[in-house]
Simulated assay, not measured.
Amino acid sequence: MTDWHDDILENCLEILLDYRGKSPPKASVGIPVLSAKVVKTSGLLQPIEQKIAFDYYAKWMVRGLPHVGDVVMTTEGPMGEVIQLTEETVQYALGQRIVCLRGKSGILDNTFLRYLLSSPSQQNILEGYSTGTTVPGISQKALRSLPISYPPFDTQRQIGTLLSSLDDKIDLNRRTNETLEAMARALFRDWFVDFGPTRAKMAGEAPYLSPELWELFPAMLDNEGKPEGWHISSIGDETDIVGGSTPSTSNPIFWNGDHYWATPKSLFGNSLKCDS
Protein backbone atom coordinates (compact mmCIF):
# COMPACT_ATOMS: atom_id res chain seq x y z
CA MET A 1 0.00 0.00 0.00
CA THR A 2 2.83 2.36 -0.92
CA ASP A 3 0.41 4.71 -2.68
CA TRP A 4 -1.74 5.16 0.43
CA HIS A 5 -1.59 8.44 2.31
CA ASP A 6 -1.50 8.98 6.07
CA ASP A 7 -3.27 12.02 7.49
CA ILE A 8 -5.69 13.08 10.19
CA LEU A 9 -9.42 13.07 9.60
CA GLU A 10 -9.89 16.83 9.91
CA ASN A 11 -7.57 17.56 6.98
CA CYS A 12 -9.68 15.35 4.72
CA LEU A 13 -13.12 16.68 5.65
CA GLU A 14 -15.18 19.37 3.98
CA ILE A 15 -17.61 19.47 6.88
CA LEU A 16 -18.20 17.97 10.30
CA LEU A 17 -21.68 18.57 11.73
CA ASP A 18 -21.88 17.91 15.45
CA TYR A 19 -25.35 18.10 17.01
CA ARG A 20 -24.34 16.74 20.38
CA GLY A 21 -25.73 18.48 23.40
CA LYS A 22 -29.31 18.78 24.47
CA SER A 23 -31.88 16.58 22.79
CA PRO A 24 -34.42 18.24 20.48
CA PRO A 25 -37.95 18.49 21.91
CA LYS A 26 -39.94 15.39 21.06
CA ALA A 27 -43.16 15.33 19.10
CA SER A 28 -45.65 12.51 18.56
CA VAL A 29 -45.80 13.31 14.84
CA GLY A 30 -43.08 14.87 12.74
CA ILE A 31 -39.61 14.28 11.27
CA PRO A 32 -37.62 11.23 12.47
CA VAL A 33 -34.47 11.97 14.46
CA LEU A 34 -31.22 10.09 13.89
CA SER A 35 -29.57 9.27 17.21
CA ALA A 36 -27.18 6.71 18.66
CA LYS A 37 -30.20 4.62 19.59
CA VAL A 38 -31.11 3.87 15.98
CA VAL A 39 -27.90 4.36 13.95
CA LYS A 40 -26.34 0.92 13.46
CA THR A 41 -23.73 -0.14 10.91
CA SER A 42 -25.97 -3.07 10.03
CA GLY A 43 -28.79 -0.62 9.22
CA LEU A 44 -31.14 1.82 10.92
CA LEU A 45 -33.31 0.33 13.63
CA GLN A 46 -36.93 0.74 12.61
CA PRO A 47 -39.32 2.19 13.51
CA ILE A 48 -37.68 5.44 14.62
CA GLU A 49 -39.82 6.58 17.52
CA GLN A 50 -38.09 9.90 18.27
CA LYS A 51 -39.47 12.75 16.15
CA ILE A 52 -39.46 16.54 16.09
CA ALA A 53 -42.27 18.77 14.88
CA PHE A 54 -42.19 19.66 11.19
CA ASP A 55 -42.05 23.39 11.92
CA TYR A 56 -39.17 22.92 14.37
CA TYR A 57 -36.77 21.32 11.87
CA ALA A 58 -35.37 24.63 10.57
CA LYS A 59 -34.90 25.89 14.13
CA TRP A 60 -33.03 22.77 15.16
CA MET A 61 -30.81 22.19 12.12
CA VAL A 62 -28.97 25.50 12.36
CA ARG A 63 -25.46 24.04 12.40
CA GLY A 64 -25.75 22.85 8.82
CA LEU A 65 -27.76 20.50 6.65
CA PRO A 66 -26.52 17.06 5.60
CA HIS A 67 -26.23 15.95 1.97
CA VAL A 68 -27.02 12.64 0.32
CA GLY A 69 -23.99 10.39 0.77
CA ASP A 70 -22.75 12.05 3.96
CA VAL A 71 -21.50 9.68 6.63
CA VAL A 72 -23.16 9.61 10.05
CA MET A 73 -21.28 8.08 12.98
CA THR A 74 -22.25 7.60 16.61
CA THR A 75 -19.87 9.11 19.12
CA GLU A 76 -21.20 7.49 22.30
CA GLY A 77 -23.65 4.90 23.59
CA PRO A 78 -22.46 3.04 21.51
CA MET A 79 -19.53 4.57 19.69
CA GLY A 80 -18.49 3.86 16.11
CA GLU A 81 -21.73 2.80 14.44
CA VAL A 82 -21.69 4.12 10.85
CA ILE A 83 -24.27 4.67 8.11
CA GLN A 84 -24.41 6.68 4.88
CA LEU A 85 -27.33 9.01 4.23
CA THR A 86 -29.74 8.20 1.42
CA GLU A 87 -32.38 10.26 -0.39
CA GLU A 88 -34.77 9.35 2.43
CA THR A 89 -32.59 9.55 5.54
CA VAL A 90 -30.94 12.84 4.52
CA GLN A 91 -34.28 14.47 5.33
CA TYR A 92 -34.15 13.27 8.93
CA ALA A 93 -33.00 15.49 11.78
CA LEU A 94 -29.63 14.92 13.45
CA GLY A 95 -29.90 14.18 17.14
CA GLN A 96 -27.75 13.34 20.12
CA ARG A 97 -24.41 11.54 20.16
CA ILE A 98 -23.85 11.53 16.39
CA VAL A 99 -21.75 13.49 13.92
CA CYS A 100 -22.19 13.96 10.19
CA LEU A 101 -19.03 13.84 8.04
CA ARG A 102 -18.37 14.82 4.44
CA GLY A 103 -15.07 14.17 2.71
CA LYS A 104 -13.29 16.82 0.67
CA SER A 105 -14.03 16.51 -3.03
CA GLY A 106 -11.21 14.68 -4.79
CA ILE A 107 -9.55 13.82 -1.49
CA LEU A 108 -11.82 11.53 0.53
CA ASP A 109 -14.75 9.66 -0.99
CA ASN A 110 -17.76 9.45 1.33
CA THR A 111 -18.55 5.82 0.56
CA PHE A 112 -14.93 4.84 1.16
CA LEU A 113 -15.04 6.84 4.42
CA ARG A 114 -18.10 4.88 5.50
CA TYR A 115 -16.33 1.56 5.11
CA LEU A 116 -13.05 2.89 6.47
CA LEU A 117 -14.66 4.04 9.73
CA SER A 118 -16.47 0.74 10.18
CA SER A 119 -13.40 -1.40 9.45
CA PRO A 120 -11.89 -3.35 12.37
CA SER A 121 -8.55 -1.53 12.12
CA GLN A 122 -10.13 1.94 12.19
CA GLN A 123 -12.50 0.87 14.98
CA ASN A 124 -9.44 -0.08 17.04
CA ILE A 125 -7.91 3.36 16.39
CA LEU A 126 -11.21 4.99 17.28
CA GLU A 127 -11.32 3.08 20.55
CA GLY A 128 -7.79 4.24 21.35
CA TYR A 129 -8.85 7.88 20.99
CA SER A 130 -11.98 7.46 23.11
CA THR A 131 -12.51 8.35 26.74
CA GLY A 132 -14.67 6.77 29.39
CA THR A 133 -14.78 3.20 30.67
CA THR A 134 -18.42 2.38 31.30
CA VAL A 135 -19.64 4.22 28.20
CA PRO A 136 -16.74 4.94 25.80
CA GLY A 137 -17.09 8.10 23.71
CA ILE A 138 -15.00 10.38 21.55
CA SER A 139 -14.84 14.15 21.65
CA GLN A 140 -14.99 16.27 18.52
CA LYS A 141 -11.38 17.35 19.06
CA ALA A 142 -10.18 13.75 19.30
CA LEU A 143 -12.27 12.76 16.29
CA ARG A 144 -10.77 15.53 14.18
CA SER A 145 -7.26 14.32 15.07
CA LEU A 146 -8.06 10.69 14.28
CA PRO A 147 -5.33 9.22 12.04
CA ILE A 148 -6.53 7.63 8.80
CA SER A 149 -4.92 6.01 5.76
CA TYR A 150 -6.42 6.19 2.30
CA PRO A 151 -5.48 5.38 -1.32
CA PRO A 152 -5.82 7.69 -4.36
CA PHE A 153 -9.34 9.04 -4.87
CA ASP A 154 -10.12 6.86 -7.91
CA THR A 155 -9.12 3.76 -5.96
CA GLN A 156 -11.32 4.88 -3.06
CA ARG A 157 -14.30 5.11 -5.39
CA GLN A 158 -13.61 1.65 -6.79
CA ILE A 159 -13.39 0.21 -3.28
CA GLY A 160 -16.58 1.98 -2.24
CA THR A 161 -18.47 0.79 -5.31
CA LEU A 162 -17.36 -2.82 -4.78
CA LEU A 163 -18.24 -2.89 -1.09
CA SER A 164 -21.57 -1.15 -1.71
CA SER A 165 -22.53 -3.72 -4.34
CA LEU A 166 -21.67 -6.52 -1.91
CA ASP A 167 -23.78 -4.87 0.79
CA ASP A 168 -26.66 -4.52 -1.66
CA LYS A 169 -26.39 -8.21 -2.49
CA ILE A 170 -26.33 -9.14 1.19
CA ASP A 171 -29.38 -6.95 1.84
CA LEU A 172 -31.22 -8.48 -1.13
CA ASN A 173 -30.45 -11.98 0.14
CA ARG A 174 -31.61 -11.02 3.62
CA ARG A 175 -34.90 -9.64 2.34
CA THR A 176 -35.34 -12.68 0.10
CA ASN A 177 -34.78 -14.97 3.08
CA GLU A 178 -37.27 -12.99 5.14
CA THR A 179 -39.85 -13.37 2.37
CA LEU A 180 -39.19 -17.10 2.07
CA GLU A 181 -39.40 -17.54 5.84
CA ALA A 182 -42.71 -15.67 5.92
CA MET A 183 -44.03 -17.88 3.10
CA ALA A 184 -42.87 -21.01 4.94
CA ARG A 185 -44.59 -19.89 8.15
CA ALA A 186 -47.78 -19.13 6.23
CA LEU A 187 -47.70 -22.56 4.54
CA PHE A 188 -47.08 -24.33 7.82
CA ARG A 189 -49.95 -22.53 9.49
CA ASP A 190 -52.31 -23.21 6.59
CA TRP A 191 -51.41 -26.91 6.35
CA PHE A 192 -50.83 -27.93 9.97
CA VAL A 193 -52.64 -25.36 12.14
CA ASP A 194 -55.66 -24.19 10.15
CA PHE A 195 -55.84 -27.37 7.98
CA GLY A 196 -56.66 -25.18 5.01
CA PRO A 197 -56.56 -27.86 2.29
CA THR A 198 -58.95 -30.12 4.21
CA ARG A 199 -61.31 -27.26 4.95
CA ALA A 200 -61.20 -26.27 1.26
CA LYS A 201 -62.13 -29.83 0.27
CA MET A 202 -65.02 -29.82 2.74
CA ALA A 203 -66.25 -26.54 1.27
CA GLY A 204 -65.98 -27.86 -2.29
CA GLU A 205 -63.39 -25.26 -3.24
CA ALA A 206 -60.96 -25.70 -6.11
CA PRO A 207 -57.52 -27.19 -5.31
CA TYR A 208 -54.79 -24.62 -4.72
CA LEU A 209 -51.90 -27.08 -4.40
CA SER A 210 -50.29 -29.41 -6.90
CA PRO A 211 -52.23 -32.69 -7.35
CA GLU A 212 -49.66 -34.81 -5.51
CA LEU A 213 -49.76 -32.48 -2.49
CA TRP A 214 -53.53 -32.02 -2.62
CA GLU A 215 -54.04 -35.79 -2.39
CA LEU A 216 -52.08 -35.94 0.88
CA PHE A 217 -54.75 -34.03 2.78
CA PRO A 218 -57.89 -35.85 3.99
CA ALA A 219 -61.28 -34.62 2.80
CA MET A 220 -62.82 -34.37 6.29
CA LEU A 221 -62.01 -33.24 9.82
CA ASP A 222 -62.57 -35.65 12.70
CA ASN A 223 -64.42 -34.94 15.93
CA GLU A 224 -61.30 -33.34 17.40
CA GLY A 225 -61.10 -30.85 14.54
CA LYS A 226 -58.03 -32.33 12.86
CA PRO A 227 -57.86 -34.08 9.48
CA GLU A 228 -59.18 -37.62 9.56
CA GLY A 229 -56.44 -40.20 10.07
CA TRP A 230 -54.04 -37.70 11.60
CA HIS A 231 -52.95 -38.13 15.21
CA ILE A 232 -51.18 -36.01 17.79
CA SER A 233 -47.86 -37.29 19.10
CA SER A 234 -44.55 -36.08 20.51
CA ILE A 235 -41.32 -36.01 18.56
CA GLY A 236 -39.78 -38.44 21.04
CA ASP A 237 -42.40 -41.04 20.17
CA GLU A 238 -41.70 -40.78 16.46
CA THR A 239 -37.89 -40.53 16.35
CA ASP A 240 -34.77 -42.04 17.84
CA ILE A 241 -32.41 -39.34 19.12
CA VAL A 242 -28.73 -40.24 19.04
CA GLY A 243 -25.94 -37.89 20.10
CA GLY A 244 -23.25 -37.11 22.57
CA SER A 245 -20.29 -38.97 21.15
CA THR A 246 -18.56 -40.10 17.98
CA PRO A 247 -19.94 -43.43 16.73
CA SER A 248 -17.76 -46.34 17.75
CA THR A 249 -15.45 -47.65 15.06
CA SER A 250 -16.60 -51.14 16.07
CA ASN A 251 -20.06 -50.32 14.75
CA PRO A 252 -19.76 -50.79 10.97
CA ILE A 253 -23.12 -49.16 10.24
CA PHE A 254 -21.50 -45.72 10.61
CA TRP A 255 -18.18 -46.53 8.98
CA ASN A 256 -19.00 -48.56 5.88
CA GLY A 257 -19.81 -45.51 3.74
CA ASP A 258 -23.55 -46.16 3.67
CA HIS A 259 -24.45 -43.77 6.48
CA TYR A 260 -23.42 -40.20 7.24
CA TRP A 261 -23.02 -38.59 10.61
CA ALA A 262 -22.44 -34.96 11.57
CA THR A 263 -20.33 -33.26 14.23
CA PRO A 264 -20.16 -29.56 15.23
CA LYS A 265 -17.17 -29.08 12.92
CA SER A 266 -19.42 -30.20 10.04
CA LEU A 267 -21.45 -26.99 10.30
CA PHE A 268 -20.40 -24.22 7.90
CA GLY A 269 -22.88 -21.33 7.94
CA ASN A 270 -26.01 -22.62 6.22
CA SER A 271 -24.33 -25.75 4.83
CA LEU A 272 -23.51 -29.12 6.37
CA LYS A 273 -20.44 -31.25 5.66
CA CYS A 274 -20.94 -34.77 6.93
CA ASP A 275 -18.39 -37.51 7.59
CA SER A 276 -18.83 -41.12 6.61
Rank of each mutant, 00 (worst) to 15 (best):
I159T: 00
L117G: 13
A184Q: 10
F195K: 06
T161I: 02
D168Y: 08
G137P: 10
L117H: 08
I138Q: 14
T176A: 04
N110A: 13
T179D: 08
L180N: 15
Q122C: 04
R114F: 02
R175F: 00
G106W: 11
L113N: 04
K104I: 00
F112Q: 12
N173S: 09
L166H: 06
Y150R: 05
S149W: 01
S118C: 05
P151N: 00
L146V: 04
S165E: 15
D171S: 15
R114Y: 00
K104W: 01
I148V: 14
D168A: 13
Y129M: 09
L113D: 03
P120D: 15
L143T: 03
T111W: 02
D190E: 10
P151I: 09
L162G: 01
T155W: 02
R157N: 06
T155I: 07
T131F: 11
T155S: 00
S121V: 00
S165T: 11
E181H: 05
T161H: 02
R175H: 12
M183W: 02
A186K: 05
R157M: 02
T133K: 13
T179G: 05
A142N: 14
E127G: 09
I170F: 09
D154A: 11
I170W: 01
L163T: 01
R185T: 09
S164K: 12
S149T: 00
S118Y: 06
F153K: 01
L126Y: 11
